[in-house]
């Protein structure tokens, strides 16, 4: 790229963003006040995750600040939600977990959506044997219970990589692509025959170019919704992997916290499970509602 081409490319990017902002779905989304509230809450969570990632808060999640199981009190903000069985601040651990949740959700959803889109795109566009192979692969995966596959995969992978967050990524990535793949494949099958794609073919563009630049961008509305759903799915499944000891290791996550507090409720220590549940509920609820609004806004049938 020459020096002169760079500002031009930048201008085109800005133009694309402006187009997106002015598009009908974006306008519709901006009018949906409920969706905007949810988006703000997600942004707030993201901010907390960012603050944790930069080390500004939460790096002291392992420090003992008070006796074990101190109930919530007003001594300092770190005592607001009490302490756990090792006297560690619940609120700090809860905030720190936000970073873990964003990490798990974002990476898993990104892997799942990217792999799914590419596989679905290739299968739908090229058809024939390639399509048969992809369809066979996802039909096979679908006929194994999701949780069973997730757990078996995590166990198997943890023999190689050791337990920890990497196993979570691999297990989620390997199972999450199925949903977006099916949807994208179906859409590509439709788009493949449309006039603008035939025009692109008549212009002599390569198959890869047509698929990547002309077809797949037009499936992004579906992928976007799936991304939000996978994000939520990852956060929720991490709790279950944590229960089995296959989840995040060495740092707190909402799953780790909920699992730690399983036996505490009977002794009346409600604050740990309460804090983790409410924190997770807020983020997952907002993602769910926003995904719905996104789907409504992007649905070409609704005006």
């Amino acid at each position: 790229m020459t020096a002169a081409a760079l500002p031009e490319a930048r201008g085109r990017f800005a133009q694309t963003l402006a187009d997106m902002w002015a598009s009908r779905p974006a306008k519709k989304l901006r009018r949906d006040r409920f969706a905007l509230v949810c988006l703000s809450v997600i942004a707030l969570y993201a901010l907390v995750a960012l603050l944790v990632a930069t080390g500004l808060i939460g790096s002291d999640f392992a420090d003992r600040i008070a006796p074990n199981y101190t109930p919530p009190n007003n001594e300092s903000w770190k005592h607001w939600l009490g302490t756990d069985r090792q006297g560690r601040s619940i609120i700090v651990r809860m905030l720190y977990s936000t970073k873990v949740a964003f990490g798990v959700g974002f990476v898993s959803a990104l892997i799942g959506a990217t792999v799914g889109t590419l596989m679905g795109g290739v299968a739908g566009y090229y058809g024939k044997r390639l399509d048969a192979a992809v369809v066979w692969l996802y039909s096979t995966i679908q006929s194994i219970p999701n949780l069973l596959l997730l757990i078996a995969l995590s166990y198997a992978v943890s023999q190689w990589l050791g337990r920890g967050i990497l196993v979570v990524y691999v297990a989620f990535g390997a199972t999450f692509w199925v949903g977006p793949c099916r949807v994208v494949r179906g859409e590509v099958l439709k788009l493949r025959e449309s006039e603008y794609v035939q025009a692109a073919r008549a212009m002599g563009y390569s198959n890869a170019r047509i698929l990547l630049l002309h077809i797949l961008p037009n499936t992004m509305h579906l992928v976007l919704v799936y991304f939000a759903l996978l994000f939520v799915g990852a956060i929720k499944s991490e709790v279950i992997l944590s229960y089995l000891g296959l989840g995040v290791q060495g740092e707190p996550s909402w799953g780790v916290m909920i699992n730690q507090s399983r036996a505490e409720l009977i002794s009346g220590y409600y604050w740990q499970i309460g804090a983790a549940t409410v924190a997770m509920f807020g983020l997952v609820l907002c993602f769910n509602v926003f995904a719905d609004a996104l789907q409504d806004a992007l649905d070409p049938k609704s005006l």
């Binding site: 909920i258 997770m280 997952v284 769910n288 719905d292």
Partner: peptide
């Protein structure tokens, strides 16, 4: 319904 979907499986069991 959405609220019900947003609570962890494990929390339902424990609670």
């Amino acid at each position: 319904s959405v609220m019900g979907m947003s609570i962890s499986f494990l929390v339902y069991i424990v609670v």
